[in-house]
Protein backbone atom coordinates (compact mmCIF):
# COMPACT_ATOMS: atom_id res chain seq x y z
CA UNK A 1 0.00 0.00 0.00
CA UNK A 2 2.74 2.45 0.95
CA UNK A 3 4.46 1.49 -2.31
CA UNK A 4 1.37 2.61 -4.23
CA UNK A 5 1.38 5.97 -2.50
CA UNK A 6 5.05 6.59 -3.12
CA UNK A 7 4.84 5.49 -6.75
CA UNK A 8 1.91 7.82 -7.26
CA UNK A 9 3.77 10.71 -5.75
CA UNK A 10 6.77 10.08 -8.02
CA UNK A 11 4.58 10.21 -11.11
CA UNK A 12 2.89 13.49 -10.19
CA UNK A 13 4.18 16.82 -11.37
CA UNK A 14 5.64 18.92 -8.57
CA UNK A 15 3.32 21.79 -7.69
CA UNK A 16 6.18 23.89 -6.29
CA UNK A 17 5.80 27.62 -7.06
CA UNK A 18 9.03 29.31 -8.24
CA UNK A 19 10.33 31.89 -5.79
CA UNK A 20 10.06 34.64 -8.43
CA UNK A 21 6.30 34.10 -8.53
CA UNK A 22 6.02 34.31 -4.74
CA UNK A 23 7.96 37.43 -3.84
CA UNK A 24 5.64 40.43 -3.87
CA UNK A 25 2.55 38.29 -4.50
CA UNK A 26 -0.39 39.09 -2.20
CA UNK A 27 -3.32 37.32 -3.90
CA UNK A 28 -5.97 36.44 -1.35
CA UNK A 29 -4.88 38.98 1.26
CA UNK A 30 -6.98 41.94 0.01
CA UNK A 31 -4.36 44.46 1.08
CA UNK A 32 -5.59 47.90 -0.01
CA UNK A 33 -3.84 50.22 -2.47
CA UNK A 34 -4.73 53.91 -2.67
CA UNK A 35 -5.32 55.46 -6.09
CA UNK A 36 -3.93 58.91 -5.25
CA UNK A 37 -5.56 60.88 -8.05
CA UNK A 38 -9.01 59.73 -6.93
CA UNK A 39 -8.52 61.01 -3.36
CA UNK A 40 -10.73 63.79 -2.08
CA UNK A 41 -11.32 64.95 1.44
CA UNK A 42 -14.84 63.56 1.37
CA UNK A 43 -13.63 60.15 0.21
CA UNK A 44 -10.84 60.15 2.78
CA UNK A 45 -13.34 60.87 5.57
CA UNK A 46 -15.51 58.03 4.38
CA UNK A 47 -12.54 55.64 4.31
CA UNK A 48 -11.56 56.54 7.87
CA UNK A 49 -15.14 56.07 9.00
CA UNK A 50 -15.56 52.55 7.57
CA UNK A 51 -12.17 51.18 8.65
CA UNK A 52 -12.79 48.80 11.60
CA UNK A 53 -9.21 48.78 12.93
CA UNK A 54 -8.08 52.43 12.50
CA UNK A 55 -5.67 51.38 9.75
CA UNK A 56 -6.84 54.51 7.94
CA UNK A 57 -6.62 57.89 9.61
CA UNK A 58 -6.59 61.58 8.71
CA UNK A 59 -3.99 64.01 10.00
CA UNK A 60 -2.86 67.58 9.59
CA UNK A 61 0.81 67.77 8.73
CA UNK A 62 2.39 71.17 8.05
CA UNK A 63 -1.01 72.62 7.12
CA UNK A 64 -1.68 69.80 4.72
CA UNK A 65 -4.41 67.27 5.23
CA UNK A 66 -3.04 63.76 5.02
CA UNK A 67 -4.48 60.29 4.76
CA UNK A 68 -2.48 57.68 6.64
CA UNK A 69 -2.66 53.96 5.87
CA UNK A 70 -1.02 51.63 8.36
CA UNK A 71 -0.75 48.15 6.85
CA UNK A 72 0.15 46.76 10.28
CA UNK A 73 -3.38 47.60 11.42
CA UNK A 74 -5.18 46.45 8.25
CA UNK A 75 -7.18 43.22 8.38
CA UNK A 76 -7.89 43.23 4.63
CA UNK A 77 -11.66 43.39 5.13
CA UNK A 78 -12.13 45.33 1.91
CA UNK A 79 -14.60 47.83 3.35
CA UNK A 80 -12.47 50.76 2.19
CA UNK A 81 -12.43 49.41 -1.36
CA UNK A 82 -16.25 49.14 -1.22
CA UNK A 83 -16.67 52.69 0.09
CA UNK A 84 -13.79 54.42 -1.72
CA UNK A 85 -15.44 55.34 -5.05
CA UNK A 86 -12.38 54.09 -6.91
CA UNK A 87 -9.85 55.67 -4.54
CA UNK A 88 -9.03 52.26 -3.04
CA UNK A 89 -8.36 49.06 -4.96
CA UNK A 90 -7.14 45.67 -3.83
CA UNK A 91 -3.35 45.62 -4.21
CA UNK A 92 -2.00 43.40 -7.00
CA UNK A 93 1.41 43.10 -5.38
CA UNK A 94 2.79 43.97 -1.99
CA UNK A 95 6.40 44.15 -0.84
CA UNK A 96 6.02 45.79 2.57
CA UNK A 97 6.62 42.47 4.30
CA UNK A 98 9.51 41.87 6.65
CA UNK A 99 10.13 45.61 6.82
CA UNK A 100 10.68 48.10 9.64
CA UNK A 101 7.60 49.56 11.31
CA UNK A 102 7.83 52.95 9.58
CA UNK A 103 7.72 51.22 6.20
CA UNK A 104 4.34 49.68 7.01
CA UNK A 105 2.83 53.18 7.11
CA UNK A 106 2.04 55.34 4.07
CA UNK A 107 0.89 58.96 3.89
CA UNK A 108 -0.91 60.81 1.13
CA UNK A 109 -1.37 64.52 0.70
CA UNK A 110 -5.10 64.63 0.09
CA UNK A 111 -5.28 68.00 -1.66
CA UNK A 112 -2.12 67.43 -3.65
CA UNK A 113 -3.33 63.88 -4.44
CA UNK A 114 0.18 62.50 -4.05
CA UNK A 115 1.96 60.05 -1.82
CA UNK A 116 4.36 61.61 0.68
CA UNK A 117 6.13 58.45 1.82
CA UNK A 118 8.86 56.66 -0.17
CA UNK A 119 7.75 53.95 -2.55
CA UNK A 120 8.26 50.33 -1.59
CA UNK A 121 10.60 48.30 -3.78
CA UNK A 122 8.84 46.88 -6.82
CA UNK A 123 8.42 43.09 -6.95
CA UNK A 124 11.14 43.05 -9.66
CA UNK A 125 13.58 44.85 -7.35
CA UNK A 126 12.68 42.59 -4.46
CA UNK A 127 13.21 39.51 -6.61
CA UNK A 128 16.57 40.78 -7.89
CA UNK A 129 18.59 39.87 -4.81
CA UNK A 130 16.81 36.71 -3.81
CA UNK A 131 19.15 34.14 -5.24
CA UNK A 132 22.08 35.45 -3.24
CA UNK A 133 20.01 34.84 -0.09
CA UNK A 134 19.18 31.27 -0.78
CA UNK A 135 22.61 29.77 -0.24
CA UNK A 136 22.26 29.95 3.54
CA UNK A 137 20.28 28.35 6.32
CA UNK A 138 17.81 29.84 8.79
CA UNK A 139 16.12 28.19 11.74
CA UNK A 140 12.72 29.60 12.57
CA UNK A 141 10.68 29.13 15.72
CA UNK A 142 7.01 30.09 15.49
CA UNK A 143 5.50 31.52 18.66
CA UNK A 144 1.77 31.99 19.13
CA UNK A 145 1.28 34.86 21.59
CA UNK A 146 -2.52 34.60 21.49
CA UNK A 147 -3.44 34.35 17.82
CA UNK A 148 -6.78 33.14 16.42
CA UNK A 149 -4.82 30.38 14.58
CA UNK A 150 -5.36 31.97 11.16
CA UNK A 151 -1.67 32.94 10.98
CA UNK A 152 -0.69 29.45 12.19
CA UNK A 153 -2.66 27.90 9.34
CA UNK A 154 -0.77 30.03 6.81
CA UNK A 155 2.63 29.46 8.44
CA UNK A 156 1.96 25.73 8.39
CA UNK A 157 1.11 26.06 4.69
CA UNK A 158 4.71 27.20 4.08
CA UNK A 159 5.78 23.59 4.50
CA UNK A 160 3.34 22.22 1.89
CA UNK A 161 4.61 21.15 -1.55
CA UNK A 162 3.54 24.44 -3.20
CA UNK A 163 5.69 26.70 -1.02
CA UNK A 164 8.24 24.14 0.24
CA UNK A 165 10.09 26.55 2.51
CA UNK A 166 12.85 24.00 3.11
CA UNK A 167 14.09 24.50 -0.46
CA UNK A 168 15.38 27.89 0.72
CA UNK A 169 17.31 26.34 3.61
CA UNK A 170 14.68 27.63 6.04
CA UNK A 171 13.52 25.18 8.69
CA UNK A 172 10.99 25.31 11.49
CA UNK A 173 12.54 24.13 14.74
CA UNK A 174 10.87 22.85 17.87
CA UNK A 175 12.93 24.71 20.44
CA UNK A 176 13.61 28.44 20.73
CA UNK A 177 17.12 27.43 21.76
CA UNK A 178 17.74 26.20 18.20
CA UNK A 179 16.25 29.26 16.52
CA UNK A 180 17.73 32.22 14.65
CA UNK A 181 14.35 33.84 14.10
CA UNK A 182 11.13 34.07 16.10
CA UNK A 183 7.95 34.45 14.05
CA UNK A 184 5.48 35.81 16.58
CA UNK A 185 1.75 35.79 15.82
CA UNK A 186 -1.25 37.18 17.66
CA UNK A 187 -1.81 40.04 20.02
CA UNK A 188 0.14 39.27 23.19
CA UNK A 189 -2.49 38.23 25.70
CA UNK A 190 -2.12 38.91 29.41
CA UNK A 191 -1.93 35.19 29.97
CA UNK A 192 0.87 34.72 27.40
CA UNK A 193 3.02 37.76 28.19
CA UNK A 194 5.32 35.91 30.58
CA UNK A 195 5.77 32.95 28.24
CA UNK A 196 6.50 35.27 25.30
CA UNK A 197 9.27 36.98 27.27
CA UNK A 198 10.69 33.63 28.41
CA UNK A 199 10.68 32.28 24.85
CA UNK A 200 12.44 35.41 23.58
CA UNK A 201 15.08 35.03 26.31
CA UNK A 202 15.61 31.38 25.33
CA UNK A 203 16.58 32.27 21.75
CA UNK A 204 20.38 32.66 21.54
CA UNK A 205 21.73 36.01 20.28
CA UNK A 206 21.94 37.25 17.62
CA UNK A 207 18.22 36.79 17.13
CA UNK A 208 15.64 38.15 14.74
CA UNK A 209 12.06 38.78 15.83
CA UNK A 210 9.31 39.17 13.26
CA UNK A 211 5.79 40.25 14.24
CA UNK A 212 3.33 38.45 11.98
CA UNK A 213 -0.20 39.45 11.07
CA UNK A 214 -2.32 42.45 11.96
CA UNK A 215 -2.57 41.28 15.59
CA UNK A 216 1.18 40.80 15.95
CA UNK A 217 1.92 44.13 14.25
CA UNK A 218 -0.66 46.29 16.02
CA UNK A 219 -3.10 44.22 18.10
CA UNK A 220 -5.36 44.15 15.02
CA UNK A 221 -9.04 43.68 15.70
CA UNK A 222 -8.25 42.90 19.35
CA UNK A 223 -6.55 46.24 20.07
CA UNK A 224 -7.89 47.81 23.25
CA UNK A 225 -9.07 44.58 24.88
CA UNK A 226 -8.63 44.25 28.64
CA UNK A 227 -7.27 40.74 28.11
CA UNK A 228 -4.36 41.68 25.83
CA UNK A 229 -1.15 43.56 26.54
CA UNK A 230 -0.84 44.78 22.97
CA UNK A 231 1.19 44.15 19.81
CA UNK A 232 4.31 41.97 19.98
CA UNK A 233 6.56 45.03 20.28
CA UNK A 234 4.78 45.98 23.51
CA UNK A 235 6.48 42.99 25.13
CA UNK A 236 9.70 42.12 23.26
CA UNK A 237 11.93 43.98 20.75
CA UNK A 238 10.77 43.44 17.15
CA UNK A 239 13.02 43.70 14.07
CA UNK A 240 10.45 43.45 11.31
CA UNK A 241 6.74 43.30 10.56
CA UNK A 242 4.67 41.18 8.18
CA UNK A 243 1.13 42.62 7.80
CA UNK A 244 -1.99 40.72 6.73
CA UNK A 245 -4.97 39.04 8.33
CA UNK A 246 -3.65 36.47 7.91
CA UNK A 247 -0.60 37.11 5.69
CA UNK A 248 -0.68 34.65 2.80
CA UNK A 249 2.16 32.13 2.45
CA UNK A 250 3.61 34.25 -0.39
CA UNK A 251 3.62 37.32 1.88
CA UNK A 252 5.30 35.31 4.64
CA UNK A 253 8.02 34.15 2.26
CA UNK A 254 8.45 37.69 0.91
CA UNK A 255 8.78 38.88 4.50
CA UNK A 256 11.22 36.25 5.74
CA UNK A 257 13.47 36.79 2.71
CA UNK A 258 13.31 40.57 3.15
CA UNK A 259 14.40 40.21 6.78
CA UNK A 260 17.36 38.13 5.61
CA UNK A 261 18.22 40.65 2.89
CA UNK A 262 18.22 43.51 5.37
CA UNK A 263 20.27 41.53 7.88
CA UNK A 264 22.90 40.66 5.29
CA UNK A 265 23.00 44.20 3.90
CA UNK A 266 23.77 45.57 7.39
Amino acid sequence: MIGDVIERSLRQRSPVIPVEALVGNCDGSRMPEIVADRLTEEVARKLVEVCPTSALGMYELEDRRCLRLSYGHCIGCGKCADAGQGAVVVARNFTRCGVAKEQTVRLWDIDGRAEMTPLAPSPEEARGQIHSLLQRALNVRQLDAGSCNGCEAEITALTNPYYDLERFGIHFVASPKHADMLLVTGPVTRNMAEAVKATYEAVPAPKLVVAVGACGCSGGIFAGSHAIVGAVDAVIPVDAYIPGCPPTPAMLITGILEVLRRRIAK
Binding site: G146, C148, G186, T189, F222, S225, H226, A227
Partner: peptide, 11 residues
Protein backbone atom coordinates in the same frame (compact mmCIF):
# COMPACT_ATOMS: atom_id res chain seq x y z
CA UNK B 1 -6.01 26.71 28.93
CA UNK B 2 -7.16 30.25 28.19
CA UNK B 3 -3.65 31.43 27.34
CA UNK B 4 -5.17 32.92 24.17
CA UNK B 5 -8.07 34.58 26.00
CA UNK B 6 -8.57 37.91 24.26
CA UNK B 7 -11.74 39.22 25.92
CA UNK B 8 -13.52 38.75 22.59
CA UNK B 9 -17.09 38.64 23.92
CA UNK B 10 -16.53 41.97 25.67
CA UNK B 11 -15.02 43.46 22.49
Amino acid sequence: HFYTHKGTEKL
